[in-house]
Nucleic acid binder design. Structure first.
Lengths: 200, 200
DNA sequence: AGAGGCATGTAATATGTTACATGATTGT
DNA sequence: ACAATCATGTAACATATTACATGCCTCT
C-alpha cells in the first residue's frame, strides 16, 4: 500500500520514466521502503489505470518509446490525503527477535554466529544511511537536488530537516540493534562454560 | 517462512491442539511474530503434510474431535537446522519513516498527529512487552511455565535469560521510536510560525 | 562488432490480511 | 435454554519475492 505513495512522492517532484524512477528510487526512498523493479513497473501501470498518474509516450530512437509519467491532480490529492491519514501499523513480525527468544535451544557457537551476523547486518545499514546523511548535507543526492530546485526558498530548510530527521532515526534504531546484539554476545559468554558448551 | 518455526518452537515444548496453540501463540511468540488464526490452521496442515508435525485425533464429546499436534523427529531436525542457518534479513520497508521523510509536504497539524500516533503506538507496545517481562520474572506465563517444567535445571536460567534479552531488546527499540517521534515534535514546533503554519 | 546501460516487463510462488462461516461442548 | 468458549477452517484479495525474458540504443 505504501509503495504507491513512495512513487507518488518521487513523481511529485517532476516527471520521470519508469526506468529513471526505479533508479532514483533505489537511492532515495528505497533506503526507507525497498521495492524491486519487478514491483515498480506493474504498480505504475495500476496507478495509471486508477488515474493517479499519466504517461506521455516519448519516441526513443527509431522504434523504441519510453513512457514518462507525471502525477495527475487526482494523484496529488491521493498523496496529500494519505499524509493526513493515520498510519496503519503492521503487527510486529521480527525474525531476529523470534530467534533470539530461543537461543538456548542451539549451541553457543550458533548463537554467536547469529548475533555477529546481526551486528554486521545493522552496521552495513548504518553505513548506507550515514552515507545518505552526508549526501543530504552536501545536497549531493540527485533526487533531493531536483526537489530543492523546484522548492520555494522557505521550504528548503524543512525539506532538509525532515530528511535528516528520518535518516537519523534509522541510524539510531540500527545502533540500538547493534548494541543489543553485543549485549547478547556478552550474555552468551556469561552462560558458556570453559569447555565451550553451555555452562551447567 | 518464520511462522512454522515459531509454531515448532511452541510444539517442541509439548503437544497442543490447533486451538490451544493459537491461544498460547498470542501470548508468547505472538509478541514477536504475530499471526492470525486463519494463518495458523492452514500452516499446521501444511507442516503435517510435510511431516514436520503429526496429529493425533482425540474424541471430544460425542461427535467432535480435536487434533493434537506433536513435533516429529523431522520437525525437530528442521527446527535445530533453522537455528543454525543465517537469518534472511528483509529489506527495510517502514511506513513511518517513509512518511517522516515527507512531513514538509503536509501541515504542521497533520505532522504532529502522525508523530503523536507514533508515540502512542510504541508506548502501547512497550506496555505489552514490559508486562511480558514481569510475567517472565514471575514465571507466570503459562507457556514458559510448561517449558521450564520439561527443562532440566541447568537450562532454566538460560531459557529465562534469553527471553529477557529478547523482550528487553524490543522495549529498548520501542523507546527509541518514542524518543525519535518526540524529537520530531520538537522539530515541527521549531519549524512552525506563530500563525500555526510552517515558518517562512 | 560488442559491451554496457536503457527500457519494460511476465510468471510463478510465497506470504499475509480480512472477512466470513460453522458447529459442538461446557458451565450457569 | 443460553452464553461463552472450544474448535476448525475457507475464500478472496493484496502484497512481496525470485527468477527469468526481451530487445533497443549509444559509445567505443
Amino acid at each position: 500500500m505504501s509503495l504507491r505513495f513512495a512513487l507518488l512522492a518521487l513523481l511529485r517532484v517532476g516527471p520521470l520514466s519508469g526506468y529513471d524512477l526505479q533508479k532514483q528510487f533505489a537511492e532515495s526512498v528505497g533506503h526507507v521502503w525497498h521495492a524491486p523493479d519487478s514491483q515498480i513497473y506493474p504498480e505504475l501501470r495500476k496507478m495509471e489505470a486508477e488515474g493517479l498518474i499519466a504517461a506521455e509516450e516519448q519516441p526513443r530512437g527509431e522504434r523504441a518509446t519510453r513512457r514518462v509519467y507525471h502525477v495527475t491532480d487526482a494523484g496529488d490529492d491521493a498523496f496529500t490525503a494519505w499524509m493526513r491519514t493515520p498510519l496503519a501499523y503492521a503487527r510486529v513480525r521480527d525474525p531476529a527477535h523470534l530467534r533470539a527468544a530461543y537461543l538456548e535451544t542451539t549451541t553457543p557457537a550458533a548463537a554467536r554466529d547469529f548475533l555477529h551476523a546481526h551486528v554486521a547486518q545493522w552496521e552495513s545499514e548504518i553505513a548506507r544511511w550515514e552515507d545518505e546523511l552526508t549526501r543530504i548535507d552536501a545536497v549531493e543526492n540527485p533526487m533531493l537536488a531536483r526537489r530543492l530546485a523546484v522548492t520555494a526558498r522557505g521550504d528548503r530548510d524543512r525539506t532538509i530537516a525532515f530528511k535528516r530527521f528520518t535518516y537519523e532515526g534509522l541510524v539510531e534504531r540500527a545502533r540500538g540493534e547493534v548494541a543489543w546484539a553485543r549485549r547478547g554476545l556478552a550474555l552468551v559468554d556469561a552462560l558458556t562454560g570453559p569447555d565451550g558448551a553451555w555452562a551447567r
